[in-house]
Structure formats: structure tokens, C-alpha cells
Write a protein that binds this DNA or RNA. Structure first.
Lengths: 333, 333
DNA sequence: TTGTATGCGTTATCAA
DNA sequence: TTGATAACGCATACAA
């Protein structure tokens, strides 16, 4: 039989109030403290999270809303979040929205109705006024690698400017001049930052970015496949290519394989993406590896602090530098 | 202000009992039905899942315990599960255990304490008696592509025998005789079935499996990397290689790249894994693509039926055939 | 078919 | 510092 604080109280010969206080970390007389502890152990008492939640309006649950699980950037961050949460009493409720605004809204609503105590959001679609309700009800939100206009929230970011800058610059130093950049969706901050990094590196070295070099891969594998195919079909090919996300890098690879473009002989290639990708392509791919483990940990910690009411440095923006992992897909020309 | 069934009852001029019955699908007088519906809409009433759960001992939550999120087999099934659950009132609580038995036990315990209504489990480590408690408390479990000895539970499986058989046989038909098989951990059913499929195909064509052809990749990328390196370092190399999981296929690729083994010229290669992998390796990889979408959907539906008390065909074992996607990594010799 | 009343396990208020 | 007791929002047994 499952026991309640009433059973514990009876066995310890104290009142339920006292037991409840014990459970919530209030000070008791040392002796009573011990008595309760013993009773809890004997009865194998476990708190009932639903009853607790009903009273306290907390679910001890953290929502994670992400676009999908096929992106390693997302999954490694979620993994890190879960790991960080293991020592706490929080669990993760997972929701995906496939980059659809309607879906996103729906999921935001569902999770709010479940009384999540906090939210970790990977934003890749517009959300509507539902986010205001989160604010009104004081449900903290941590955004991953993006902003949402009009929403003051904590953010855990990749230093995307720096990443693109570094990648572009290394290509320039290898004497590349015609460096193309496959960007994502223009409306997103992550894309603007990357593009600015790319532009800044180009202009610092007095290189022109003619219009043909900047192509839009729309954050998707298939779109990237098409634009890269088009890009490399032109008479004036770039000698180097920087692709701004993992799924788009996959698309680019597919196109390049199909066109039989030699890497790095005909084209030097750098992709944003995880380290894993660099090991299974041939040649090994030079990638910009994002510090997902640190990001997930940070996001979890930030969120917990907010849940505990510590808004001292709100809104916080933490930026992590990525690492350029140089492999065989780039060369000097 | 958030409204309760009391508010709804008052506005509809009925009792809370009636409203509660309405919400749980009991029959009401048509007029009252309408009145309640109107009131609910006007008040934007939402059920309080915690209160509901406290009374009914249901959390409307389904636990998913998986080894980690870096395996596409896992993530695509989870995605399918979530999609199937969208039209229901269930949400997913996610937990990972990194193939450690202690972790698995811990997670099983945590989720039980959260009153999950059902569990989807990807078993790759031994679990202890905690699973008996699930049975005692009537929490249904669906196992994905594995069995747990001593546990009667529904299972959603890949037809691993058939998969390995088909893959081996196509290699045989391409005149390969020395076909090596990188297997996973022997203690798991998935591995035994694959191995039997491989053996069956070999013996049907009267081919001997000498001991050197069967190597153990331990289900991990790194282990597979090492054994394949060793395997291909021998004087007598196989002419074809079948690798029995996605992570191990990655490890095999790393080894083969490193040793500069020409694929498919020197070695024909088939890997278990997802379709995506086949597109980014060079040459394009022939893979055994598992029907993860269907599996996830089935798992969700099976679990919901059990939660609803329908145990008519318990325990059910559903087996899905995988698809051999032939690309450029195999050739006739 | 509906209303009333009790309890699910906890927290919080108020007295002691 | 502790005890008694009233909520929290809902489901259900029982009566009507």
C-alpha cells in the first residue's frame, strides 16, 4: 500500500503539518526531524506530485518545445538538459512542432495547461500572444539560439557571428576569394548573425560579396540541395562554400556528390554542424562544432534559477563560442 | 481568472457532478449538454490535470525511456509516438539512461513516482524488480525492438531475422562468399535474431561462417571502429561486410576510411541504419532502413489501448519488416 | 438523468 | 515550533 503524509505523521506521532514542513525544508526540532525521517524510511513514503501540484500549482515539470528530433544540435542540447536535471526533481515534457507556427502555438498551449514550471524553447517559427500568458503567469522561458521579438526572456546562444567569421576567415587565409555562403531563413537572428560574420570577414579582407555568392537554403536539407546544385551549375563557380546549418550541410553534400564536385580539389567546404558529421563524410568534413553540452547545462540552470524566483540578472543572454574543427574538406589554392 | 467546473456548473445552472460527467463522456440530457458546452466556451474552461489526476490516479502522461537521443532509430520512433499522441490528451515525459542498468532503474522509479499512465521502453540494459511493480500497479509497457526476460509485455519489433537474411542474401547473389558480420551485444534479442538471419542465409547457400567472419562491435561506434580495423587488417579479408546497427556502421565507415579500403571495389558494405545515412556517405550506402514511423505509431496505439483497459490480445508482438535500400556501396564480384 | 457530499494527498492559515 | 483544519479542482457513491 502506498503511504501518505498522514501515515508518516501517525507513525512519528506528529501532525501532517509538521511532516509537510519537514518535506519542504522548514526547521523542526531535531528530535522530530529524526522521527519523521525514520517513519518515511520505514513506510517507503513518496510524495504524491499530483496532490502537491494541485495545492502548490507546480508540476515539477519542464517543457521542452523543439522543431524536431532529427537535428543533432537539438538532441544534444536536450540530452544535456536532461542530464543536468537528474539531480533535481524536475522532469522533461517533450513536444515537437516541425517549424509550424500553428503547431507551436498549440504545443505552447498544451504545455501551459499542464502547468509546466518552466519552458525551454527552440524557436524556429513565429509564436503568437500565448507567450504573453506565459509571462503573466510567471512561467520562465529560456530560448535556445534565437530571439523572439517582443519577448523579454533569457537566452542561451551560440556566438554565430564569431563562428561564421572564423570559418570565412580561414577560407580567406587559404587564398579563397569566391566564398559562397548558404544561409538559412532571413527572418531569424541566428541567420542574421551568421551572415554578418561572413560579411565582416569578407569585407575585412576587402573581398566583394557579389550577389551570386549568397544563396538561401531555407534551413532545410532539400532546399539547400537545390540551391547548391544551382550554384555549382553556374559557369562562375565559387571555390569555397560555407553552409550555415547541419541539415543544410547534408543537402549541400548530396548536391556536390551528385555533381561530382571534388572536395576539396574543386571546392573547399565548411559546414555548421556536429562533430559526428565530420567523421562519416568523405573527405572528413571541416565543421563548426557548437558547444551543445554546455548550452544545455546552462539552459537548465538558468531556468531553475528563475523557477526559484531568482530574477537578479534578468534577462540574461549567454553566448557560447563554437569550435572550428579542421578536417580534410578545405585546402589552400 | 482560471475557472473550474464549479464556475461552469453555476453558469449552466447545473451541478458540478453533471459537469464532471459531461467532461468524462457520460450521457446527459441534450439540453444540459448544450448548456454546459456553452458555459465552457464562455469561461474558456480548462480541466485541471493535477486535480483530475489526484482523484483518478491518472497523469495523462506517457513515459519514454530510451538509451540516448543520438540514435536516429530512437528519435524517429519517439517522433512518431509524439505525433500519434497529438490527438489524444497524453504527453510524453522523456528520460535517458545511457545503457546503464542503474540509470535505467532510477528512471523507471522516477517515472513511476510521477504516475505515468504507460511506458514506452527501449531496453538496452538489464532492469531489476522495479518492472514487477509496474505490473502490479497495472502500468502498461511497450517494449521497442527487444524483449525483457521474465516480463510479459507488448512489443513492437523490427523483423531482424528477415533484415539480416535479406541483406546477406543479396551479397551472396552478388557472388560474395566471405561475408563478415559485425554484431552487437550477444545478450540482446535483436542481436540474436540478426545473427540467425545472417547464419541462415549463409547456410542456405552452403557457405561456411568461419570464426573470423563474425566479429563483435558491442553496439557502439568506437568498438565497431576497432573490430573493423582489426578485421580488415588481416591477410584474409572478407569481400563484404554487414554491420548490424547505425552507430556501428558509423564506426565501420571510420575504420574503412582510415584504412583506405575502397568501397565497393575492395569491400561491399551494408549497414543497418536510417535512410539519411545512405545519402551523406560516399559512396552512397546500402542500408537496411527500419520502419520507424510505423513502429512509433503502433507503439503509441498499443499503449493507449492498454491504458484504456483493452487487454484482449495481450501480450501482443508486432513485427515490422525493414526495407533494403540498395545504393552504391555493394557490387558484384 | 441529476444533485449532494466526501475524499484524493498536499499546503497554508491560524491558534496554541 | 507545532496542531487542527480548510482549501486546491475534480470524480464518484449514493440518494433522489
Amino acid at each position: 500500500m502506498v503511504s501518505t503524509i498522514h501515515d508518516v505523521a501517525k507513525m512519528a506521532d506528529l501532525s501532517v503539518g509538521t511532516v509537510s514542513r519537514y518535506l519542504n525544508g522548514y526547521n523542526l526540532k531535531e528530535e522530530n526531524h529524526q522521527r519523521i525521517e525514520r517513519a518515511i524510511r520505514k513506510l517507503e513514503f513518496k510524495e504524491n506530485l499530483m496532490a502537491k501540484g494541485l495545492r502548490s500549482r507546480r508540476s515539477h515539470t519542464i517543457g521542452v518545445i523543439l522543431w524536431n528530433l532529427s537535428d543533432k544540435f537539438v538532441t544534444s542540447i536536450v540530452t544535456a538538459v536532461e542530464r543536468r536535471l537528474e539531480s533535481t526533481r524536475y522532469n522533461l515534457i517533450l513536444s515537437t512542432y516541425e517549424k509550424s507556427s500553428e503547431e507551436l502555438d498549440k504545443k505552447l498551449r498544451v504545455l501551459k495547461d499542464r502547468f509546466i514550471d518552466g519552458l525551454i524553447l527552440f524557436p524556429q517559427a513565429r509564436a503568437t500572444s500565448i507567450l504573453d500568458e506565459y509571462r503573466e503567469e510567471n512561467i520562465p522561458i529560456v530560448l535556445i539560439d534565437e530571439e523572439i521579438r517582443g519577448l523579454k526572456a533569457d537566452r542561451v546562444m551560440v556566438d554565430n557571428f564569431d563562428s561564421a567569421f572564423k570559418a570565412t576567415e580561414i577560407l580567406i587565409k587559404l587564398n579563397h576569394r569566391k566564398i559562397a555562403f548558404v544561409e538559412g531563413k532571413k527572418s531569424f537572428l541566428v541567420n542574421r548573425e551568421q551572415r554578418e560574420g561572413y560579411m565582416a570577414a569578407m569585407s575585412r579582407h576587402a573581398l566583394a560579396v557579389d550577389s551570386g555568392l549568397l544563396v538561401n537554403g531555407g534551413f532545410s536539407t532539400i532546399k539547400s540541395y537545390h540551391v547548391v546544385k544551382q550554384l555549382m551549375g553556374k559557369k562562375e563557380r565559387p571555390t569555397a562554400l560555407l553552409v550555415s546549418s547541419q541539415p543544410m550541410t547534408v543537402g549541400a553534400l548530396m548536391a556536390l556528390y551528385e555533381l561530382n564536385v571534388g572536395i576539396p580539389d574543386e571546392l573547399s567546404l565548411i559546414g555548421f554542424g556536429d562533430y559526428g558529421l565530420s567523421m562519416i563524410t568523405r573527405p572528413f568534413l571541416t565543421v563548426i562544432d557548437k558547444p551543445t553540452a554546455a548550452m544545455g547545462k546552462k539552459a537548465a540552470e538558468l531556468l531553475i534559477r528563475r523557477i526559484n524566483g531568482d530574477y537578479s540578472d534578468f534577462p540574461r543572454m549567454v553566448k557560447f563560442k563554437s569550435k572550428l574543427v579542421v578536417k580534410d574538406s578545405i585546402r589552400e589554392i
